[in-house]
């Protein structure tokens, strides 16, 4: 495989990207196609809690929410994964054992990435040992913005190795990269260094995920696929709170990468409150009525 020269910039036109996104937003999703997409979106949620306040009790609650999103309707699908800090992985893995729900852990000095390389590698290994099968790493934005692309490439490759069998999601923290061309470049670096998924944000920086940023990343994934035949996943994270936005993301994935990516194996939403809005809309589609938020358990 030929690795591109990351000093070269793939041009991205800001206005063009944003106009394309505006077109996705005009798609009108109705009836059966809406119900299908709502259920699909729910199955793509990485239910997330990443707070200093995350006690075992809170994580336990989140795990049960992941398994039983809406007890009143057993036909509702489960979410894809839960996403926690490394010291809560063991508990989550115990609760979710046998459920099919993945356990994702942030690592590598999340959210800043400012730890030593050694400590960051250790953190990855610890999380995997504790039972995480997905690792959400952060790249060194300082190195990227300084133009040290090889450093970023190498750290990703190193963490990928430390992951062993666990899948690696690479968080670019696009809110700090500022330009779409930077987003594209960081996506390419992550993909060629071995990312299984590329992810927009930690959720700790504003702006977090946006549709235009995600579109630029989807184009990087598509180019890689067209060159190599290998599929890399995409995870927008942070700021996606309502079902309507989630459906627009799915429209964008469908019309950019096709049906092949409309699966939790290749597309995830990093979110917490999104799940309940999806549930409300699913129940609305089924019954024709909106219910109060009090009828939906919080995570």
């Amino acid at each position: 495989m030929m690795i591109p020269d990351f000093k070269q910039t793939v041009p991205v036109d800001q206005i063009g990207v944003e106009e394309r996104v505006a077109r996705f937003r005009t798609r009108s999703i109705k009836k059966e196609s809406k119900l299908f997409a709502l259920k699909l979106a729910l199955q793509m949620v990485d239910l997330t809690t990443l707070e200093g306040m995350d006690s075992p009790g809170k994580v336990r609650q989140l795990c049960y929410k992941a398994m039983y999103p809406h007890a009143a309707d057993p036909n509702i699908p489960m979410v894809a994964a839960i996403c926690v800090y490394p010291n809560r992985v063991r508990l989550a893995a115990e609760i979710l054992k046998g459920s099919g729900i993945h356990v994702a852990s942030v690592a590598t000095s999340f959210p800043s990435g400012m730890g030593t390389l050694e400590s960051r590698i250790e953190e990855v290994k610890y999380a995997v040992d504790e039972g995480a099968d997905e690792i959400d790493m952060v790249i060194s934005r300082w190195a990227f913005l300084k133009g040290e692309y090889n450093y970023v490439f190498d750290e990703i490759a190193t963490f990928k190795e430390a992951c062993g069998p666990a899948h690696l999601k690479v968080i670019l923290e696009t809110g700090e990269l500022e330009t779409y061309e930077n987003v594209r470049k960081a996506s390419d670096i992550a993909i060629y260094a071995g990312a299984d998924f590329i992810k927009t944000s930690t959720g700790k920086i504003s702006p977090a995920a946006t549709m235009p940023v995600t579109l630029v990343m989807l184009y990087a994934i598509r180019d890689y696929y067209l060159r190599t035949g290998n599929k890399v996943g995409m995870k927008p994270a942070g700021g996606i709170r309502d079902a309507k936005t989630a459906l627009h993301y799915l429209v964008m994935v469908k019309e950019t990468l096709g049906a092949g990516w409309l699966t939790p194996d290749l597309f995830r939403f990093g979110a917490s409150s999104l799940a309940n809005d999806l549930l409300m809309q699913i129940i609305k589609q089924k019954t024709g009525q909106y219910q109060s938020p009090d009828y939906f358990s919080i995570g």
Partner: peptide
């Protein structure tokens, strides 16, 4: 993507799995 690199013409399928219902 140079001409030489674009040899893996992968197929992307846009119509499968999820089609939009009419929204007239």
């Amino acid at each position: 993507m140079s001409e030489k690199e674009l040899t893996t013409h992968q197929n992307l399928h846009f119509d499968e799995l999820w089609a939009y219902d009419p929204a007239p």
